[in-house]
Design a protein around this nucleic acid. Structure first.
Lengths: 342, 342
DNA sequence: TAAATTTGCTTAAACGATTAAGCAAATATA
DNA sequence: TATATTTGCTTAATCGTTTAAGCAAATTTA
């Protein structure tokens, strides 16, 4: 049996015989309202269990204090951690967030954008789906004049703020580590080149090989969606080669796990016979046998910076969207799968 | 350079020299608006890139078409899958969802409830944090008169709709399976009894032991938060006992993983020396060595039913909250960790 | 003491959509 | 042909809050 009507500022005003405007101002600690009235208003508000109507104030102020977040999925530790840290920063500034998942589907991503715009969010922080190449929906966000911040999966052409790690350098770091371990045939299970971060990892891989005077063998470079299944499949392909690789650098931990399963099933010693390196530092990389070397993407920092960037944009009266990259240095975590004794 | 002003129905009305009311009706296909006018309105709406203002219509209609979701965390496969399926059902009915995480913190859960109520959601679907015992914030939801649906982590005392599996029966199923495998000293790493589902699992465990004429050894029954670390700690305790268990039933896959790590580190053969069973069917249970037997909680079904329950409540004009449990049958997935040859 | 400023409120108009009520004109019915 | 009904709109109120403008009383300043 819920209360028939919710309490409004009018109800409070009636009790105290003052105007609704005075109540509104009292609740916002306006300097032109007497201390006594403020106390009265707050007391009555509590007594009547008053809850402000967000819709009304947002409509009037043209500001919802809501930030939309779009991620490919929430059940990855990376995205979940990014979101958690974004939330912490935004919460302090009085913003609440709405999380949506694209499930790597372009269509769902578009729907999410529409939903968020419809909900009148004050800005959107997003990591793009793998599928996405058509940027028109993101242009729609820009044309509304609200801040758009991309992280991890970004796109230069949108000319907006971006937070992520240096994928190109990460590949260099990985190849360098493997070369030091004496590896000479380093394979790469990569993502699709059309996604910028995966393209950068591939470019970094190729350039690092060249730098270390290692030939590029096209048989050792594959592109896929980087699911666990993809990892299995690609590793099986490698094992059928006449000249097997002595190291495999996988652009995602999930695919690396699949690759590791195949290696285990074929009784191939890791890292002695083949070194393995993943990407993303998902928790399971330290659960499995052997533990998987991987790259830490600083999810906490990324979330924090993305949120802070949003806040600085929203607070800058005459801000205009422009390409502004905030690139963090990634960190190689060496575990058993690449810690070969030499 | 965003458009200075967004398009409103008034702008459309001005172009066509009709009233804003007519535009509103035309957009909603009111039968009292001529076909010609409807066409004109929709054409101009498209031309001016009109986007309805959700805040205004929600305020006027007293309905936001938003459903709030509270989960302990999103980076678990169970919750992520529940949410995904809820979303699919609600989307078809024209509802959008706002996801929030409590991170198992009572304080954060309260904050989430406040945020959601403030955002004027039409209902809340929630799974409670482990910590939560004070139900006053949930009573607050009820007192607003909006539907509250609980799933997985529920609480009878709230007298609302609940969707989940039968934890008591699941424990019976597990103990029965272990008894069939010849186990005689079955331990249980359980959650805190104050959380209903964990209490039910413990009760089921105890009653099943009795049913199979096995004595209950208090050394073999522990309570914890069921983190990976907890699983390690409890298993270490078991290994120090004079009479070790020959099977361990863990109420969460994460804690089961921790337990497995300790077993592996101590070179104890699983399942030959000790059988292990987890709960939740998290993906990693099939990655690790040996693969972990576990219980499938039917996340997809739970999400679907929770969403459908919400819809039926919102559509029932004279619905009153009442205890209404929807209990699904769980499914035991037997993998290597308990598949002992006998 | 008069003028200027500050204090503490009120009034009324927004924000953008929806909707009850009403009113002509067009069409149907008797 | 007169009356009833339907069609196609308009007007105006409303949702709950914020805020610009204004006004009288109290206080400060000159």
């Amino acid at each position: 049996m819920g209360n028939k009507k919710r309490t409004t500022i009018k109800d409070i005003a009636n009790v105290l015989n003052i105007s609704a405007a005075a109540v509104s101002k009292a609740l916002h600690n306006d300097s032109r309202i007497s201390k006594q009235t403020k106390e009265d208003v707050k007391r009555v508000a509590k007594e009547l269990n008053y809850q402000p109507n967000h819709l009304a104030s947002a409509l009037r102020k043209g500001k919802s204090n809501l930030v939309g977040v779009i991620v490919p999925r929430t059940n990855s530790n990376f995205f979940s951690s990014v979101i958690e840290n974004m939330e912490a920063v935004l919460d302090k500034a009085g913003y609440n967030i709405i999380i949506t998942q694209s499930k790597e589907s372009f269509k769902k991503e578009c729907k999410n954008i529409d939903t968020l715009l419809y909900t009148q969010v004050d800005g959107i922080i997003a990591s793009m789906a793998n599928e996405t190449t058509d940027l028109s929906y993101y242009e729609k966000i820009k044309s509304k004049g609200i801040p758009l911040i991309l992280f991890d999966r970004g796109e230069n052409d949108l000319n907006v703020d971006y937070v992520g790690i240096n994928d190109y350098d990460s590949s260099h770091m990985i190849v360098e580590h493997l070369v030091k371990k004496g590896c000479k045939r380093i394979a790469h299970i990569g993502g699709y080149r059309r996604t910028r971060i995966f393209n950068n990892r591939i470019r970094g891989y190729i350039d690092a090989l060249t730098k270390h005077n290692l030939p590029l063998d096209q048989n050792l470079l594959t592109e896929s969606s980087l699911t666990l299944e993809d990892g299995r499949e690609m590793m099986q392909k490698f094992l059928q080669l006449e000249q097997r690789p002595d190291a495999v650098y996988v652009a995602s931990d999930y695919a690396a796990l699949g690759a590791l399963q195949v290696l285990n099933e074929n009784n191939i010693n890791v890292p002695e016979d083949i070194c393995l390196i993943g990407f993303g530092n998902e928790p399971f990389t330290s659960f499995v046998k052997p533990t998987i070397s991987t790259v830490n993407q600083h999810s906490a920092e990324i979330g924090k910076i993305a949120a802070e960037t949003f806040l600085s944009r929203i607070n800058d009266k005459n801000w205009k969207p422009s390409l502004n990259k905030n690139i963090l240095k990634s960190e190689l975590i060496v575990r058993e799968s690449s810690d070969k004794k030499i």
